[in-house]
Design a protein around this nucleic acid. Structure first.
Length: 675
DNA sequence: TTCCAGACGTTTTTT
DNA sequence: ACGTCTGGAA
């Protein structure tokens, strides 16, 4: 690998407009101004990791590296947007051409340019979890006719397919490793997987995993494309490297093979995505894979008080697999974190609500407080309680804006127009009609495909091919659905109009007006609420030039965007309710960690498996280190189980691992007598 | 074949 | 309390 075309960097750029020395500590500055080459940055929680990355990018740009030669990979779209914005702030203007985003979104970007090399159209659809679930279900149904073998549930299959992809593994291998009880059906599962892969391709659709796998395939199978990107990306920066999986690791290696200027940044103690295939050996073994890589450590914590850090260190201490780190507190001493034992989850909820009110009275804005929990359903009682006390909150709920049924119904129409081979979009659209069920939809789809391939025009100039094909198969539609079918055909014809198809907002409007609104009225009691979300949907779509682009982003930008959109005013003062996973990378003045019961946190599924338990512990560590000044750990002694009798709850074993003297569990609470 | 109602089992985390 | 699945009626 030649490196003679790699650029040189000078440690202090002449005429720099950025005050590196004033804004960064010594450790951070060493990273920011490090020479080209491979670097591993182990950055502890609260050590200004994001800041360091931003300054690194700015530094490179100031050195004259063209923005399009830098690739910044982050874990969420939100993080990417935030970093791009802050880089722009530093440099006094945005840096157009700089590539930043999640692996999936960059994969999407690359594949939009070259998908035809892999036998896909560039207008391919992206399937979300729901869609891929639906497709696997269909494959499975098809299979059932032939054999009677008991297969696992559809979502287990989905998980298996996904893991196989992300871990770069074979079905049989994965079965042996973590699904030994399925070993005997593994051949069957492998076959089903092949069907699923083929079916996606036939539908010109990619699921999330394909965005990575096909991207990698593109680079491995097509030297000229590989060369192009290897040449282009002179500097590659990867955030949250501890959460990358094997496939992502391979992608980075592929992309960086020419210049070998990779900077990976992460904290192995915060690796919390192994259930999704994250392979924290990636960070653990990085120095072995890249001998000679510079290793930097950023170990000063600017976020939390020493009292909170001590609890964090104690919480993670029981883990065996980690880089030794010594986080030093930079801030002055504060309050001891408090342990609050409650009788039940209602009392716990009331405590949080009242304590939040108390803190607000003390001058802490609600938006600087957060309640964190292991799983979404841990927060239901809390929401009621906060409502009752009139404490406004923002829930980063489980279901994202774009995953809601009514949103997906509408976008299915657009998907169908953009990509008429999209089987799922067709199904979804057609199932909305009264008198059409699964069976009929399937029959119609097969007929549709025949007509479409028989005398459909060549791809290229968009033509109203979907509507005419719908027209052709109208004879297969039952009498009761003839009128709605004609209506649908007319709507699709309008959507396919040359002017309309370029304007997603207009398309949405059309779908809603041509029948979907009536459907909503008839179907949902909360018709109004759902209807009101059509406006934000249309507005969101306006920022994209093409329908493909809009649809892709709607699928890729899962819930972060939604929270913003639904909360209306982002600057309103609300307490944040979030899973720990979603709180990653954020910080708050006051943090409540609730439901610290054994079996909930750590979750029941993880307690037999030592590796899984270590991950839960890291999750706990992530939660603790979100807090700046105040930390409250709470659990209910008993818990109602659905409608059943309350059950006694064992406190989380993680609490046992914290020396009691680090926590304050004295009564009475500060808010006593306050209400 | 569709649609509805009631039973059932079930709950981790997300791009 | 929730959504998904199944079986039976239209």
């Amino acid at each position: 690998m030649s490196r003679e075309d790699s650029p040189q960097l000078s440690p202090s750029p002449p005429g720099s407009q950025i005050d590196y020395a004033g804004q960064l500590n010594e450790q951070q500055r060493a990273v920011v101004t490090s020479p080209p080459g491979t670097a591993l940055v182990i950055a502890g929680a609260g050590s200004g990791k994001t800041r360091t990355l931003i300054y690194r990018v700015a530094f490179l740009l100031e050195q004259g590296i063209p923005p399009e030669c830098i690739l910044l990979l982050t874990f969420t779209n939100k993080a990417a947007a935030e970093m791009m914005r802050r880089v722009g702030d530093l440099l006094g203007g945005p840096a157009p051409g700089l590539w930043g985003g999640t692996f999936h979104s960059i994969g999407n970007r690359v594949l939009r340019r070259h998908a035809d090399l892999l036998g896909y159209g560039r207008d391919f659809t992206i399937l979300d979890r729901d869609d891929s679930h639906e497709m696997i279900r269909a494959c499975r149904e098809e299979r059932k006719v032939e054999t009677e073998i008991a297969l696992p549930k559809t979502d287990v299959l989905g998980d298996i397919f996904s893991l196989v992809c992300n871990k770069d593994q074979s079905i049989a291998g994965l079965m042996g490793e973590q699904f030994d009880y399925l070993l005997e059906v593994s051949a069957e599962i492998a076959q089903l997987n092949e069907r699923y892969q083929a079916r996606k391709k036939a539908a010109n659709a990619m699921d999330f995993d394909d965005l990575l796998a096909l991207w990698a395939k593109l680079l491995s199978d097509h030297p000229e494309v590989r060369e192009e990107y290897q040449r282009r990306f002179q500097f590659i920066l990867v955030d949250e490297y501890q959460d990358t999986n094997k496939l992502q690791g391979r992608l980075i290696d592929l992309l960086a093979a020419r210049h070998r200027n990779i900077m990976v940044v992460g904290d192995d103690s915060q690796s919390i995505y192994s259930w999704r295939g994250a392979h924290f050996q990636n960070i653990w073994k990085f120095p072995e894979r890249y001998p000679g890589a510079a290793v930097y450590r950023i170990e000063t914590n600017y976020r939390s008080t020493p009292e909170i850090l001590e609890v964090a260190n104690a919480a993670i201490a029981a883990n065996t697999k980690q880089f030794a780190k010594h986080l030093a507190a930079a801030r002055p001493s504060g309050m001891k974190p408090r342990l609050v034992v409650c009788r039940n989850s209602y009392e716990q909820a009331d405590f949080v609500a009242q304590q939040a009110m108390y803190l607000r009275q003390q001058g802490v804005p609600l938006r600087k407080m957060a309640v964190l929990y292991r799983s979404h359903f841990h927060a239901v009682d809390l929401q009621l309680s906060l409502n009752r006390f009139g404490v406004p909150c923002d829930v980063t709920s489980g279901i994202g804006f774009f995953e809601q049924a009514h949103i997906k119904d509408v976008t299915a129409h657009l998907r169908f127009v953009v990509n008429p081979r999209d089987e799922l979009a067709f199904n979804r659209t057609v199932l909305l009609l009264d008198g059409v069920g699964r069976k009929r939809a399937d029959k119609l789809w097969r007929a549709f495909l025949v007509e479409l391939t028989d005398d459909g025009p060549k791809t290229g100039e968009p033509t109203p091919v979907a509507a005419t094909t719908l027209q052709k198969i109208a004879r297969l539609v039952p009498k009761s659905a003839q009128a709605p079918w004609a209506q649908l055909t007319a709507t699709i014809a309008q959507l396919e109009g040359a002017q309309t198809r370029k304007n997603a907002a207009r398309m949405i409007q059309l779908v809603v007006r041509c029948g979907y609104e009536e459907y909503l009225q008839q179907t949902y009691a909360n018709y109004r609420a759902r209807m009101e979300e059509m406006e934000p949907l249309a507005r969101f779509s306006e920022q994209f030039d093409t329908g493909e682009d809009f649809l892709a982003q709607a699928t890729l930008q899962t819930n972060a965007e939604a929270a913003q959109r639904r909360g209306a005013g982002e600057h309103e003062d609300r307490i944040r309710l979030s899973t720990i996973h979603q709180a990653k990378g954020l910080e708050f003045d006051a943090v409540f960690i609730i439901m610290l019961c054994d079996g909930l946190f750590p979750s029941g599924r993880s307690i037999e498996d030592p590796m899984a338990l270590e991950e839960e512990r890291r999750l706990f560590y992530v939660a603790i280190t979100r807090a700046r000044d105040a930390l409250y750990l709470t659990y209910p002694r008993s818990r109602g189980f659905g409608g059943r009798d309350p059950m006694f709850q064992e406190r989380s074993r993680f609490l046992e691992e914290i020396p009691p003297q680090l926590l304050d569990n004295t009564a009475p609470p500060p808010w006593a007598g306050y209400s």
